[in-house]
Design a protein around this nucleic acid. Sequence first.
DNA 1: GCAATTAATTGAACACCGTTCATATAAAAT
DNA 2: ATTTTATATGAACGGTGTTCAATTAATTGC
Lengths: 214, 214
Amino acid sequence: MARRSDHTREELKELALTEAAKTARRRGWRAVTARGVARAIGYTPGTLYNVFKNLDDLLLQMNGRTLDALYAHVTQAPVSDAPAEALRQLGTRYAAFVAKHPRLWAAVMEFEPKRGSELPAWYRARAVRLVGLGERAIAGYFADGQEEERQRSAYVLWSALYGITARNQSTRFTPDDDTAHLLDNFITTYIAGLERLRRAGRGRTKPKGRAKGA
Amino acid sequence: MARRSDHTREELKELALTEAAKTARRRGWRAVTARGVARAIGYTPGTLYNVFKNLDDLLLQMNGRTLDALYAHVTQAPVSDAPAEALRQLGTRYAAFVAKHPRLWAAVMEFEPKRGSELPAWYRARAVRLVGLGERAIAGYFADGQEEERQRSAYVLWSALYGITARNQSTRFTPDDDTAHLLDNFITTYIAGLERLRRAGRGRTKPKGRAKGA
DNA sequence: GCAATTAATTGAACACCGTTCATATAAAAT
DNA sequence: ATTTTATATGAACGGTGTTCAATTAATTGC
């Protein structure tokens, strides 16, 4: 009943997170329970609370790993310098990842910790890193001095990808459920929009008022 | 102990859904519990199960009402015939609704019933009705025979709005948390994209291959 | 008006859940 | 060998959704 030291703290964390991901893959993140994970790795629930702050913490760390995996997947091959091509690659690779790990990705999208509305810095850093990827992809469309607008566009880009996969996964109100087509539709239109705004008025977002641009 | 008939079945449903919405507004949909709702309306949990299939059913019906409210809000004023203006109105009104009822809208976005992955027809109909609104707004950009592409674009439009508000509400990784700006950025770029594709190649979505067009 | 039927409401019970914590014990330090 | 420290335990607390036999009020048939 005490101090087994079969595993170090790190090993335990590894065991628990692996088990949690296994369950989430098979039965969705809602099926991940403290008791279930503990039983599966041969410990009792109380032990998990030595390693994780609570179950939300465990799930958030699981999602952190998924974000890492997505980042690794997207950056596996170099991203083109041509913005249109880079955007298209980003969309395609994102779509491929989501298709490959639908439930793990659903966990990232659907779960949010209830205790304390602020997400921890290490988690936000992982999200920001992905947004940065988008920001770099569209960088060619923006001049110096338009960093704010560029960042906003990257957020929008990311949120839209997010929304398209979320809707198509959970409440799927598309007839054919063809996520790839929807993503392609979005990317194409978004690229066209950026190009048009580039040529016309240097990335203005509001209908009135023209940016000075460097 | 039995048969009070203080309220009809319909009244009971009304009471429960109103109470659920009240709780969701104040403390989020996760705080809506069978016991809590029952206590608040002066009944016991068991009674709720005569009126609703289960708690998921109750929450889904609550969300159905929110979808109705959004539809009513968006269609309160007539929508412009000019696609760009219509789209901008749609985005603005959507943003206003979400800003006014953040937690009720979060319920629509975040909640999904676990039992049975398929959403009931009456719920999907409400979602489809909203998508139809977007489809009508962008109709001017599409020629006859492009109904499929038009519908896809409407789905994309809706999903993107969805994603932008979802991200900005729950995990908010934007610095300034300015949902209205992000929605405006998206709408502007999307309009520009649609207009460009209209002029260039009749709404093709794929990089290669040109549609015949009517 | 009374008895039989029907329908609604209950409350206890079941099987879970996350979380806490005094206790016991194994390992480490003295 | 003894003290100290760290860790795993399991029981317990207060919650959850959900089911269902029993109870009782309203309704119906006579």
